[in-house]
Design a protein around this nucleic acid. Structure first.
Lengths: 113, 113
DNA sequence: CGCTAATATTAGTTAAATCTAATATGAAAG
DNA sequence: CTTTCATATTAGATTTAACTAATATTAGCG
């Protein structure tokens, strides 16, 4: 591990400044993590066409209410969704355009062919 | 699990067909999961400007060789990178345009402001 | 062949994610 | 104020991910 001079000399200033932008990398990793579960991707896809109450989501994705609630909590904690109370129901939706963008990109990349 | 007919009838054909495209969702989740670690995001960013030998990556990201090797194995297992042997060295690079696209999108979304 | 450099692999431990099943909260109805 | 519906929360068990530190593999050099 001695040779410190790499003739290769990677210039990644146009990509990521790995030192200076480590905060953004953490953030990106956290977002990816939040999306790294099939159920959560499904939920985000559903919400990208508009808000939904929890029960609707439960029926759409096919698991238990408690489980959906847990996954919604994860998405909420990572600021990918927000919620709105309406009487007994709670509606979830996407409020961040970046999230919409990521979901659209995901669909684009994985659901093309 | 009894009621097979959901009167709710979510129309998500324009987003994801959650039944039919569950395979793509699994795939997307797996890709997100592969990217859900800061070190792996760093590596992918580095590789998006060209191939690199393991040692170069180790020096660029600042952890142990064994650890980088483990993360590279994860990226390789999820088909996000491939490798090429050149003498004693092994070069890793991105061979899938979709991966390039995802990395670019990630940079775009998280490294703008 | 024996050595070294580059990389991979393994074992062991600790931490985090996930599911299930049960229970709690809280709003609205009556 | 009791019941009910919608949602959240918790506990416990299981699985998966992660790091560290050590060891294995393998190519090339001399």
């Amino acid at each position: 591990m001695a040779t410190k001079s790499i003739s290769h000399e990677v210039d990644n200033t146009d990509i990521f400044d790995l030192i200076g932008k480590s905060h953004q990398i953490e953030e990106a990793a956290a977002a990816m993590q939040a999306m790294s579960h099939p159920l959560r991707i499904k939920i985000l896809c559903l919400l990208s066409s508009g808000e939904m109450a929890v029960q609707e989501i439960v029926e759409a994705v096919g698991t238990t209410q408690g489980n959906v609630s847990q996954h919604l909590a994860i998405l909420k904690a990572s600021n990918m969704v927000v919620s709105r109370v309406a009487g007994k129901q709670i509606f979830y939706f996407i409020d961040d355009k970046r999230v919409v963008k990521i979901v659209a990109m995901t669909r684009d990349v994985f659901c093309s062919t």
